[in-house]
Design a protein around this nucleic acid. Sequence first.
DNA 1: GACTGATGTAGAACGTGTTACAAGTCTAGA
DNA 2: TCTAGACTTGTAACACGTTCTACATCAGTC
Lengths: 211, 211
Amino acid sequence: MTSVSTEPRNTDGPSPATPPTGGSAAQRERRRRILDATITLAAEGGFDAVQMRAVAEQAEVALGTLYRYFPSKIHLLVSALAREFTKDVDRSAVRATPGDTAHERIMYVLNRRTRALQKQPKLTEALVRAFMFADQSVTGEIHEVGTSLTTVIARAMHGTPTLGEVTEEEAAIIRIISDVWLSALISWVTGRMDEQDVEKSIDVAVRLLLR
Amino acid sequence: MTSVSTEPRNTDGPSPATPPTGGSAAQRERRRRILDATITLAAEGGFDAVQMRAVAEQAEVALGTLYRYFPSKIHLLVSALAREFTKDVDRSAVRATPGDTAHERIMYVLNRRTRALQKQPKLTEALVRAFMFADQSVTGEIHEVGTSLTTVIARAMHGTPTLGEVTEEEAAIIRIISDVWLSALISWVTGRMDEQDVEKSIDVAVRLLLR
DNA sequence: GACTGATGTAGAACGTGTTACAAGTCTAGA
DNA sequence: TCTAGACTTGTAACACGTTCTACATCAGTC
């Protein structure tokens, strides 16, 4: 039912016309309201419920303004995902991850995040689908999400909030784990895996990669 | 610009109202024409160019008929992908994969397929995006694609066209390789990786998993 | 205080996926 | 052959992402 733009657009500037930190206080406030509305609607009804008119109305901005801030529905949802993930990264910087081995720590971090997402299936569906559908014009936001994820995994791998050097090999392993995690998440969102399958598949991947 | 349904629909029957092999000769012929038109349009203009009205026109069926055969654009594209992959599996069954080690054979198979896809970037974009965006209602077609992929990798791993027993561990490794491959393909489609990155990332994953 | 350019608002308009409907056509079985 | 039912067709209508237009507001400058 819902439509989704797939054409690159807004090619003359950075993807979010209003980046997270720039602009006046009123603008940052509008941006926050828009993302809040997005999360609320997505949590209630998933991807399809995030309708641009509904977001605009709930955030109390005009439709044109919404599009000025986020040039497409996909940008909007991926930006929302990036904001959520960034919160998580900040939290993970505060204290060491529990667990005696890299395997345990990585599983701890990923399972915690997985379970948090699974508590809000509609929201997760909306965010993950948007992430996967994103095209070239969303590169910036996608990259932000990817960075958050690898940072958190790298911290868990080393067991310290401060991030030391990461070797080539470790970086490769982390990327693969991210891929498996995202893949599992999609499978879960689309009903092809249940909660246990997700944890299991990540566990196997981590075990195979860290041996 | 393009719209994509994300609601489950056609919930009272199997996803493709007309499965690949059933129906009259005329129906199989119509199905073939529809998928051919889909591939042609996708190869020319990617996901956005696969417009349902255009597919119907080129396949010389009515729009309603198109929807009777494929209940949504996503079903249509994923079915097209499944058909292409199935062809590949059939081919891989004919002769042994070249290469002295499992690593070499897997890389041979995946690289060959990757390069084939990269020769038709628009087509690949359309098929991969549809695959990733697919929701619950497309489970059947998705599963078909997944099976093709794992079969081909399993054959390459063993080096024989006939498929012997696959251990739990091997199955897990194959799934992870599939995940990495699909992930890399998406990154390539969306311009976040180039050809070499794709091959490299798969090579690293296979090396780490088979050591 | 008036001007100007950027920003925001309200709402219409457009394109494409999807659905609905009325009428024609084909097929199996009596 | 005739008929019931399934299948096709052609076309209109609808929903929602996206774009466009005309006007209002606001911040900074003279």
